[in-house]
């Protein structure tokens, strides 16, 4: 579904260039639930921006449903982002001026849907994340956990191929974080939504079937449980391996 081949990304910092990603290979299958951990500065946000089609690699190829998207024009990337990628951010990134329902409608606006249809779909998605009664509230009137639920509804309203979550529980307290995490797991297990979570929280990572670690611009596979999409088994608490060279990329 999503395949990265030898992705490299470098930035020019003054006279020197810094290679943030040094040859990333990754294959994401439909229904996967993947976590990527890494220290700050390890390149995880850069990787997420590349996977989310917000940024383009310096070299390497990125295939989305077997189509090479690494060289596409900005407009095409926007359209693909809209159709295939849902974003969930640490700080929610809801638009404060809009109501929850309008926030969820936002990706549909760029698909050119009729207002009625947008609102129906947005409402259905708010219902799905347990926020049906909060549609007319603005983000300022919602708690952190509620905001993140609305954000999750917004990310899923276009029925994307991939949900990208960047520290989705990073701004939440432990209980709320657990609730949001449970919602993501449920969506993955019951609806088969493919989810990629970037986190530095081992508790979050531990609940994912497949765990990766990014270290100095390279990606290491730490654990890959061969779980079927709808297994829904409770995770066994495997050790948070620092590295698993044997499993590392080829």
């Amino acid at each position: 579904m999503l395949r990265l081949v030898d992705i490299r990304k470098s930035y020019r910092v003054g006279p020197t260039t810094r290679e943030v990603l040094q040859g990333i290979d990754l294959e994401v299958g439909a229904g996967d639930l993947i976590s990527i951990m890494g220290a700050s500065g390890s390149g995880k946000t850069t990787l997420m921006n590349l996977i989310g089609l917000l940024d383009r690699p310096t070299s390497g190829a990125c295939f989305l449903n077997e189509r090479d998207v690494s060289g596409l024009a900005d407009d095409e990337l926007s359209t693909l982002r809209n159709a295939h990628v849902g974003f969930v951010f640490q700080s929610f990134h809801l638009l404060p001026r809009l109501t929850a329902l309008e926030n969820v409608c936002l990706p549909l606006v760029y698909q050119g849907l009729r207002r009625m249809e947008m609102q129906q779909r947005a409402h259905a998605m708010l219902t799905r994340v347990g926020m049906a009664d909060w549609g007319q509230q603005r983000p300022g009137q919602l708690s952190g956990g509620q905001k993140q639920r609305v954000a999750i509804a917004r990310s899923l309203v276009t029925e994307p191929t991939l949900l990208l979550a960047d520290e989705p529980t990073g701004a939440l307290d432990a209980d709320t974080a657990a609730e949001v995490m449970a919602l993501l797991l449920e969506l993955n297990e019951q609806q088969g939504v493919t989810i990629l979570i970037i986190t530095h929280d081992p508790l979050v990572a531990r609940r994912c079937k497949r765990r990766l670690r990014i270290h100095r611009g390279t990606l290491l596979e730490t654990e890959h449980r061969a779980a079927s999409v709808h297994s829904g088994q409770p995770t066994r608490s495997g050790p948070e391996a620092t590295a698993a060279p044997a499993d590392a990329q080829p």
Partner: peptide, 16 residues
Amino acid sequence: RREIAIRRALGARRRD
């Protein structure tokens, strides 16, 4: 700026 970036992430094109 943030709103613009969010809209872009959600699929807005430059001309939108």
